[in-house]
Write a protein that binds this DNA or RNA. Sequence first.
DNA 1: TGACGAAAGGTGTATATGCACGTAAAAGGC
DNA 2: GCCTTTTACGTGCATATACACCTTTCGTCA
Lengths: 144, 144
Amino acid sequence: MTIGYTHTDFSALCACQTLRRSARAMTRRYNAALTSVDLKIGQFTTLAALLQPDPVPITVLAEQLGMDRTTLTRDLKPLERRGLVVSDSGSKDARQRRVTISDAGRALMSRAVPLWEDAQAETKKSMTDDQWADFRQGLQTLVD
Amino acid sequence: MTIGYTHTDFSALCACQTLRRSARAMTRRYNAALTSVDLKIGQFTTLAALLQPDPVPITVLAEQLGMDRTTLTRDLKPLERRGLVVSDSGSKDARQRRVTISDAGRALMSRAVPLWEDAQAETKKSMTDDQWADFRQGLQTLVD
DNA sequence: TGACGAAAGGTGTATATGCACGTAAAAGGC
DNA sequence: GCCTTTTACGTGCATATACACCTTTCGTCA
């Protein structure tokens, strides 16, 4: 029953815990920046991904956002309820549901983007663009 | 209503989205590795943090794990239900609730740690220890 | 010793996450 | 044209996340 690690080891060693912990902290920061537009960073990101001319099928959008399709289905609910996105049944394929950002959604995003820029600037002021690029590359390497 | 970013910009630029996306991917990988012991990586991390001799108050444990106290309260529920952790009322302070890992919890952890080691090795094989240290430092810098 | 602010913790509410499973429609093979 | 397989999507279930708010208890000070 000897485990070979102390309780402090995992917090320092586990790549997943390190990443999740940082993601939580970052999420809190960005969420705080977006309170006045009543958006969470996940919702902001979803709306941002919809800033494209054509309606996007659920599966494609989920792939672009790197999340499970069924998670996205539920994440869209509050946005639909607020009229920030709309969805239609696919024209050609009756199985498809395609999502579009609404005018209200675009209007809210135009208010939200400056708030996001503040949080983003605050976050990135600690490193240079080169460091950020390296860091981003490291992230990509880790999850590949 | 011009926003000034295209839909592809945010996915590449937003530090928070980048981090959250990677955290999701990493979480899926570690969760997959732990299926045979029926633990999520968050539960594993919580149990790991309890591998210390003395009972830990909720607030202290939450601080150590870098999560909200009320989140931890609910995360402990499934672990308590399975008898992996136990909690007592504080001896001195009646407000405190102190958590301890049980023998069953330690036994399960002794089975889980090798699975975690596999996932950890798989994750870190893409970078050297120095690169990992740098990356970890970058993470810390970002969320400070 | 009683009032009062601070500290520890839980609950209500809402969103986020994803696996297992089910349904319906399209595509493909014969 | 029918049968099988694949594709697109939703739901049930369970856990994760955190803010706002409430209750209980502790410490302190007059």
